[in-house]
Design a protein around this nucleic acid. Structure first.
Lengths: 230, 230
DNA sequence: CGGAGCGTTGAGCAACGTCAAAAGACGTGG
DNA sequence: CCACGTCTTTTGACGTTGCTCAACGCTCCG
């Protein structure tokens, strides 16, 4: 969500974003524990922060980043991350070097506070995920996941759509919601039969957004969207 | 974890912490959506960030703060929180006014970055909670919860102990781990019978820390402890 | 002594996981 | 275009975990 920034602030950041890199679905962009001297701004595609569980086992997706969001801005103060960063689709990112960022932020307290704020919005989303995966049953959980997907995609496109690009596998949804892919499959059928939404052919089609929000018990306040007042 | 700060930085912060307040177990310190002009440093007791679910229903604890930690430093950039802040035990906190903090940080980029970092450690803990409550079964989940409790209490006391003060109710553990209090009760019995730890009389007694770590599959890296190198 | 709150236990059940098989989707090379 | 292998989704049968409901005991405190 770069829309937390004023256009003047955005202009200052752009020169630092010269180097672009592309990844394919499944690529590991950085490993937990790696020392990082740069962060990434996601231009296109979906990236997961994921905690591996050991060879052969699937890993848990603890966060998802959408186009227009920083993927690992928290690596700037932390230097080292506690999770892997994995590309879930074909993605394009822009690198931002920590040294250059430090120089920029030293002279601009306002911008520094905005970037701080953006990492805090990520943290708010983490808390929501804790709640979702701890306190909601499968149907509500997956519905709520789609509500968030819808809201963040809408922000990324700056336009509401009823048909969204969606190239995640059911196993990815499972990793993000703490279910098995088998149960995700069944839950998607339930949502389909409720007339809420359909996932097929790389698209998420929302037939009944209101119904989906209700089943998912969705309230977007935790996303701290800049324009869309709560 | 104020130990991320140098003693010089700590000295600068202390003058802002004049006002102290006490709360009793169960007090709601601030409500979601409240506009906040100050943050709190926890001096004593335990505080939960909790998401309410409606009248009568129990709420989900999405984070726990220990003595020496900021409770809601994220309210400084965010101004408004997405969750309640609830005292779980008798607590004592020190207020820090956002205006004064802003003046201090405007003149001290290093300190600002340290505070940023501290909120990012919170976020890392959130991610761990997502993983724990999504991917671990009850026994491992509760064991891991106790491992974290042990590690953060050890940091708060600056001393390792096998008998820790523990005044949370089983229902609180349930709210934090996404289980029911009934199942927590059974799980505590299991941990007791494994010879790992006992919860009774306001104390958590760790009989076999190594065994507890193993059952909880615990790796403290996500806590980003300053001294204890990973 | 009585009540309130918390912890414990048991029985039954719903939700979700596991395993396995089959069907569909998709790209590749002939 | 078809044949093939691989990956993903779907479905069924069955097992397990953890939830629900209800009863009972315990402790603390008035």
């Amino acid at each position: 969500m770069v829309d937390h920034l004023s256009s003047a602030q955005w202009e200052m950041l752009v020169p630092l974003l010269s180097v672009q890199v592309e990844y394919a679905a499944g690529d590991v962009i950085s490993h937990r524990g790696d020392l990082l001297d740069h962060s990434l701004l996601l231009l296109d595609g979906l990236v997961a922060r994921s905690v591996p569980h050991g060879r052969g086992m699937r890993s848990t997706v603890v966060a998802l980043q959408f186009p227009g969001e920083f993927v690992d801005l928290h690596a700037f103060p932390l230097k080292q991350l506690d999770h892997d960063v994995v590309s879930l689709t074909a993605t394009r990112v822009a690198k931002i070097c920590h040294n250059a960022l430090q120089d920029l932020l030293n002279g601009n307290v306002e911008l520094a506070r905005k970037l701080w704020l953006m990492t805090l919005v990520d943290a708010s989303i983490h808390r929501h995920w804790v709640m979702r995966n701890s306190a909601m049953r499968a149907l509500a959980r997956v519905a709520n996941f789609f509500c968030e997907y819808d809201a963040r995609m809408t922000a990324a496109f700056a336009a509401e759509r009823d048909i969204l690009p969606f190239t995640l596998k059911q196993a990815d949804i499972a990793d993000a919601t703490g279910l098995t892919s088998v149960h995700v499959s069944r839950t998607l059928r339930d949502l389909r039969e409720h007339g809420c939404c359909t996932v097929a052919g790389g698209k998420l089609t929302i037939h009944d957004r209101k119904g989906l929000f209700k089943i998912g018990n969705f309230d977007a306040a935790y996303l701290y969207m800049p324009d869309t007042a709560r």
